[in-house]
Computed example of a mutant assay.
Amino acid sequence: MLIRDLPEDVVMEILSRLPVESLMRFKCVNKAWYFLIRNPDFIAKHLFWATSEKRHRGLLLNREHEITRTPWVSLHSNETLEVSRYVDLLQFFPRDVGELVVFGPCNGILCLFGVPADRNGPRDGLVLWNPATRESKALPIIQRPAEMPTTFPFRFGFGLDPKTGDLKVIRILNLNFRRCQVEVYNLSTDSWRVINTSVNPIYRINSPRFPSYLNGVHYWLACERGGPDHWLMLSFDMSNEVFQEIALPSLTERPSFEAVAVINDSVALILAYNDLATRFYYICVMNESGEEKTWTLMFTIGPLLHFTRLIELRDDGFVLLRNKNGWLVLYDPITQEQRELPIYGDSFQVVSYTETLVMLNGSGECA
């Protein structure tokens, strides 16, 4: 029996389980498949299977080139870590980028924040990008307020409003630590708007180093200026657009609060403990019971050398580290075995994502 002889719903079920790369080719088979693969119901079904079964995964590696000192981005197999292709950032930004930060993923979409190499050139840029379909969308130019120095950083969040299905980008500006302004970008309207917020301007909010969005909420690690021992977590509800302060666990030892991360559908806090020439990372998971939130130690990474830096906590239980010599290392927290990878850099950002058909432009055409 040929596939064209199968009922339409059976064909839809078969196609919804295939990788994006295959589906992008199949759009050329006939008009019926072209419109099916672009259909929102089919895209939602494909997304459901890809996320629920954790299939069709990709990995983005953002590192600083050791010679040019500019961002060098590549896509890899999430399983083997082999390179699938290199990414030209000029397809997203009008000028050379001196610094790149990646936020997400959310439904297979990444948010790229590019700082131009020439500070006197164009303003900082934000781009939403689906690396599987290669579709991208540049957000409206970010204009810095006149009183905000060009060296002063923004803080961003990125996620989905589960009530409307709309992708949102959050931009937090702390103006001279006297006033905090929060802006929200909606993909559906392609515009920014200022919202009322109760964020305390004395908080120093850390930029996310790891995926920090889960189930309609984005999380940041923050501390109170002038009070280095007062650390907390800030959350932002993408639907209600309300911030909430979350207390961190009480600790007898004095750790270094490293970051917030989402690991296997749980919100985690990363703590670092230094002991003589070694370092330990403690990964604590947040448990929610109504309004009360508690923390449980999930696992420990170490002992490691002081110069070792945590790069990614993988869903398969392994950890990516940067060793003292600048090489990327695959580490097993259970056996403490380390495998040095042939990937070198002064700094790394690694993001694993699910390959999806989620569209960014109304037409659905890929850039």
Rank of each mutant, 00 (worst) to 15 (best):
R204T: 06
E224G: 00
Q336A: 03
M24D: 05
V358R: 06
S84R: 13
V351Y: 03
V329A: 12
F243T: 05
M148C: 04
T335V: 11
G159H: 02
N78Q: 09
T356D: 05
G227V: 10
R25Q: 13
R193C: 08
L100M: 02
Y331E: 08
A268T: 04
Y281S: 01
T51V: 13
N323A: 04
L232T: 07
L341I: 15
L341P: 04
E66T: 11
M24S: 02
T68Y: 11
F156G: 02
I3A: 02
P249K: 00
L271D: 03
S77D: 15
F307W: 10
N196G: 14
W231D: 01
E135Y: 05
G226Q: 13
M238Y: 13
Y185C: 01
L310N: 09
T296A: 03
L251W: 04
Q336E: 14
Y219H: 14
I14N: 04
L313S: 03
T150W: 12
R309H: 09
V351N: 11
R38Y: 08
G114I: 14
R57Q: 15
L328E: 07
R204A: 00
M233R: 02
F348V: 11
W129L: 08
R204V: 12
L167S: 00
C366I: 07
N130T: 09
E241P: 02
M148T: 13
V10Q: 03
P19W: 14
M286L: 10
L90M: 15
R95S: 06
N200R: 11
T294S: 13
E253W: 05
S212I: 05
R314I: 06
V184P: 00
D9H: 06
M24R: 01
S191A: 15
T151V: 03
Y185E: 06
A259T: 05
L18M: 13
R17L: 08
T133S: 11
Q91W: 04
P122T: 14
L18N: 03
D9L: 06
F93H: 06
Y86I: 13
R171E: 13
Y203V: 11
G326I: 10
H230I: 10
G121V: 13
R69D: 09
